[in-house]
């Protein structure tokens, strides 16, 4: 029994790290630009498809597929910001909501037309391998996804903290007018920020492609999941996104074990409501990217 619990806990934590990466993308975009990317789930699903096709067509390892997803999704995000999103950054929130919901529907539609509604399992060898560490047996795809996501989160944290672009990004998040005063190229900072956010989502998607079948409808779940994660952690907070991801990952796993797998998706929302009652701004509800 103990070993079952440990296994569930471990697999929840592993998936939670990937959720953390997804949420980090959303929270960075929000923290800097104050826009809410309702098409974030679609960007995760783009990543899942990139993983699927990279493995299918080129038979590359998932890590390579994730790197491809990072590059492609960075440029996708950058161009999307520079062409469409930037025109709405300074508009009222309800304008932005419509734009992002529109984009999300558009992306889902494109996926549906291109690949059809049927789930496509990536089914690499990795999907069926496990590794045993004494008490717990972990599946290899999940372990690899979690380690990669964890490393990327750490790398991104170091980059934002110590690089000169990271400094500019944090400055733009802190005070946009101040950024203009010191001569920051704010439009460029915004486009790169959106690119980084989209890349986080895309990489996470590619990493979980051995675990989730590629399917257009997956996007809604991921958008909601990213929101819950970010809100639990505190909107705009870097560490909040990571913590939120872990909490949600573990909550999902425990819900499936204790009650029924059907409750798996409901429990995070129950948790969200409870946390928001007691901590209305999440765990780290502040600006601290």
């Amino acid at each position: 029994m103990l070993s079952l619990w440990l296994n569930v806990l471990a697999s929840g934590i592993l998936l939670g790290l990937v959720y953390g990466l997804v949420a980090l993308g959303l929270t960075i975009i929000f923290g800097v630009m104050r826009v809410v990317n309702f098409a974030h789930g679609e960007m995760v699903v783009f990543g899942v498809y990139i993983g699927y096709w990279a493995v299918r067509l080129c038979n590359v390892p998932i890590i390579v597929a994730a790197a491809i997803a990072a590059v492609l999704m960075f440029f996708f995000g950058y161009l999307l910001e520079a062409s469409i999103v930037k025109r709405f950054v300074n508009r009222p929130h309800h304008y932005q909501f419509i734009v992002f919901i529109g984009l999300s529907l558009l992306f889902s539609g494109v996926l549906l037309v291109a690949f059809g509604p049927d789930p496509r399992p990536t089914a690499s060898e990795l999907s069926f391998s496990t590794v045993s560490l004494g008490f717990v047996t972990l599946d290899l795809a999940r372990l690899q996804a979690a380690i990669t996501a964890g490393l990327l989160i750490a790398l991104l944290g170091v980059y934002l903290r110590f690089s000169s672009f990271g400094r500019a990004l944090r400055a733009a998040a802190d005070n946009r007018l101040g950024g203009l005063v010191v001569g920051l190229n704010i439009p460029r900072v915004y486009a790169v920020t959106f690119g980084i956010g989209a890349a986080c989502a895309g990489v996470a998607g590619a990493l979980i492609s051995p675990l989730f079948d590629a399917q257009p409808y997956l996007a809604v779940d991921f958008t909601l999941l990213a929101f819950v994660t970010v809100i639990v952690g505190g909107l705009g907070s870097f560490s909040g996104a990571l913590l939120g991801g872990l909490v949600i990952g573990v909550a999902e796993a425990i819900a499936a074990l204790m009650f029924t797998p059907s409750l798996k998706t409901a429990l995070p929302y129950a948790l969200l409501i409870i946390i928001l009652i007691f901590r209305p701004r999440g765990f780290f509800g502040a600006k601290e990217i």
């Binding site: 500019a168 944090r170 400055a171 005070n175 010191v182 920051l184």
Partner: peptide, 18 residues
């Protein structure tokens, strides 16, 4: 219009990043 959540030195370095 300083950057309140950044350190004093980071604020100065941002001024000198042109």
């Amino acid at each position: 219009q300083i950057f309140g959540s950044l350190s004093v030195e980071e604020n100065l370095l941002l001024g000198g990043s042109l």
